[in-house]
Simulated scan of single mutants.
Amino acid sequence: MSAGAQLTVTDMRRAARHPVEHAVTAEHRSLGEVPLNIVNVSPQGFMISGDLGLERGERLVMRLPVIGRIEAHMIWAHEGRAGFQFERIVRIDDFQKMVDTMQPNPRLRPKR
């Protein structure tokens, strides 16, 4: 039996992703602090570049702009990239403010 996460948020990987370049330090239960480079984000999750050496379902906790502390579970990893799903869906107004903070280029921000 797998000890991975039992995810409850509906799989919404087709949701619009917004390109960002945002460095954040996450916490892992056994690795401690883990540096992440978030390269795109949606209200349901995010993608990072770089190999973490984590297994599918493992959990990270981080603090993101506007939304604060949030937990995420690794959904997939492939060739130096990994996708994470937030433990809760981020409210759209908070998400837009977060992207504005994470993406300084206004041309790449979500259309409103």
Rank of each mutant, 00 (worst) to 15 (best):
V61F: 15
F84W: 05
L52A: 10
G53D: 09
L64H: 01
I89Q: 10
Q85H: 09
E79T: 09
G80H: 06
H73M: 13
I89S: 08
F86T: 07
S49K: 05
D94K: 14
R91W: 11
D51W: 05
Q44L: 10
R81Q: 09
M47G: 03
M74Y: 06
I70R: 01
H73V: 10
G45Y: 04
P65F: 10
V90E: 02
W76D: 09
R88G: 07
G53W: 12
L60K: 01
Q85I: 10
E87F: 08
D93C: 11
L60T: 09
M74P: 03
E87P: 00
E71D: 14
V66W: 02
V61P: 05
L54D: 12
D93F: 14
G50Y: 02
I48M: 04
P65R: 03
A72N: 07
I89L: 13
E55K: 07
D51R: 14
G80D: 03
A77R: 06
R69D: 14
M62Q: 04
R88L: 13
D94E: 15
Q85L: 11
V61E: 14
H78Y: 09
F46V: 01
D94H: 15
F46M: 14
E55G: 08
G57V: 06
I89V: 15
W76Q: 02
F84Y: 07
E55T: 10
F46G: 03
L64I: 06
G68Q: 11
L54R: 10
R91G: 13
F86Q: 00
R91P: 10
R91V: 12
R69Q: 15
F84E: 00
V66L: 06
A82Q: 08
S49L: 00
E79N: 13
M74A: 09
P65M: 01
R88N: 10
R88F: 11
D93R: 15
A72V: 07
I89N: 04
V90H: 04
G83N: 07
L52R: 04
E55L: 12
F86E: 01
G45E: 09
D93K: 14
S49V: 07
I92V: 14
V66K: 07
M74L: 11
F84A: 02
F84K: 01
I70K: 05
S49N: 04
M62S: 11
G50M: 02
W76K: 01
R56Y: 02
S49I: 05
G50I: 00
H78G: 08
V90N: 05
D51S: 15
G80Y: 00
W76M: 00
E58P: 06
R91D: 15
D93A: 15
W76Y: 12
M74S: 03
G57L: 08
M74N: 04
D51K: 13
F86I: 09
